[in-house]
Design a protein around this nucleic acid. Structure first.
Lengths: 213, 213
DNA sequence: ATCAAAATGTACGGTAGCGTTCAAATAAAA
DNA sequence: TTTTATTTGAACGCTACCGTACATTTTGAT
């Protein structure tokens, strides 16, 4: 194992080839882990998919558990890019919320995300820290952004709330309903863009009704 | 394998002892599967926990997959008992909803349930039918009961709704928020009975606000 | 007491995966 | 061209598990 932390190792290496291999390994590991889960995934399958020898995998990652952890880390760091809650200047609060709800819906409905959550949840028993890590970099961060956005709106006197955190959670609950649950257990949710719009509008209007001054 | 279907085999057996063994095996399998997931659970560990030989396990269940399926079936059939949505005669709608929300919260917050959902979700990739089976016997059934309850209330003119199914989903979404998500990823939710009451009241009042005539 | 179903222990063959070792090959940098 | 880090394949020891076979023992029913 040459380096345990791959987050900032773009500088200290003599040869650039290894960089590509690491990326390949992580990508392959991601695919395999998401498809089969932790236990049912073999290092050799990962190596094969990455077109790399098993020894190379072990030369960059301590062991299977460590590799899985790195995959989760990488995935979590990507999450922020996909779903951002923005407080756009000069935009109606309702439109901001609609945009946020759409973002949430699209983000969580992706097949990739659904599969990621499936696999991750299963590994929480084995390694609870990995669940915490995900929560910190995913849900908690998103709810935090949302809370900030709501606080700003409250400051401006546009809405009111006794408990902003709970209000943020309610927003997510109203938007998603039980859809994430149904997706997780394999129900194919067929939704046109029109359906999404309807659902989002309904959720936002409901939420605004509950929080109007 | 003496009998593949254990749901109605209380009659055709000569000896009652085997009945107890089957129950023991299922209980042990449940514990092991819920703790370690499908792949990481060994038949031998199950046999040991059930104080039974491995051969006995195989004499009653075809294989590991089949055993897991039976565990899920058993668990699903138990679910209805834990959480019932009742339309109590002569009870205020608000109280019925509060009771239902409490039932939902307590039901889904149980550590057992959280772990069951974790393991189950992970196996959906391997066997999608198992996810469908769970949805049919769990969430869909509960939402169905809830929908019936709401329809009755609408009939009585106590509330109104454009889309009852979505309203039922909203009820669940408002009550649970993102709590099920946080629980699934290992966040320890510390809630006193007082906290639960507050949350439930808040959700029910919000929902009623959205559906009053 | 007798009988047959049920359960056991042991052992087996087969497969698979983890993580390591090592000598040989490769490829970038000097 | 030489040097040095990196990569490779093949093999290894080890452990674990699946599912089966079989001879033996237990156990409930009649």
């Amino acid at each position: 194992m040459k380096n345990a932390d791959h987050t900032n190792m773009l500088l200290h290496t003599d040869r650039p080839a290894s960089q590509r291999k690491i990326v390949d390994i992580l990508a392959a590991a991601r695919t395999e882990f998401f498809a089969n889960g932790f236990s049912a995934t073999s290092i050799e399958a990962i190596a094969a998919r990455a077109c790399v020898s098993k020894v190379t995998v072990y030369s960059w990652f301590k062991n299977k558990e460590n590799l899985f952890g790195e995959v989760v880390k990488t995935e979590c760091s990507q999450m922020r890019k996909y779903f951002v809650v923005e407080n756009l200047e000069g935009t109606e609060l309702r439109d901001i919320l609609i945009s946020a709800a759409h973002g949430m819906l699209n983000f969580l409905m992706r097949d990739e995300m659904v599969r990621f959550e499936r696999v991750l949840a299963a590994e929480v028993n084995r390694d609870p820290k990995i669940g915490e890590y995900f929560l910190d970099n995913g849900p908690r961060m998103l709810l935090g952004d949302l809370t900030n956005l709501l606080n700003a709106a409250i400051e401006r006197g546009e809405i009111r709330s006794e408990n902003v955190t709970e209000s943020a959670e309610m927003f997510a609950g109203l938007t998603m309903g039980r859809m994430d649950l149904f997706l997780r257990y394999g129900h194919k949710v067929m939704m046109t863009e029109e359906d999404k719009k309807k659902r989002v509008n309904r959720a936002v209007d409901a939420w605004l009704t509950l929080h109007r001054v």
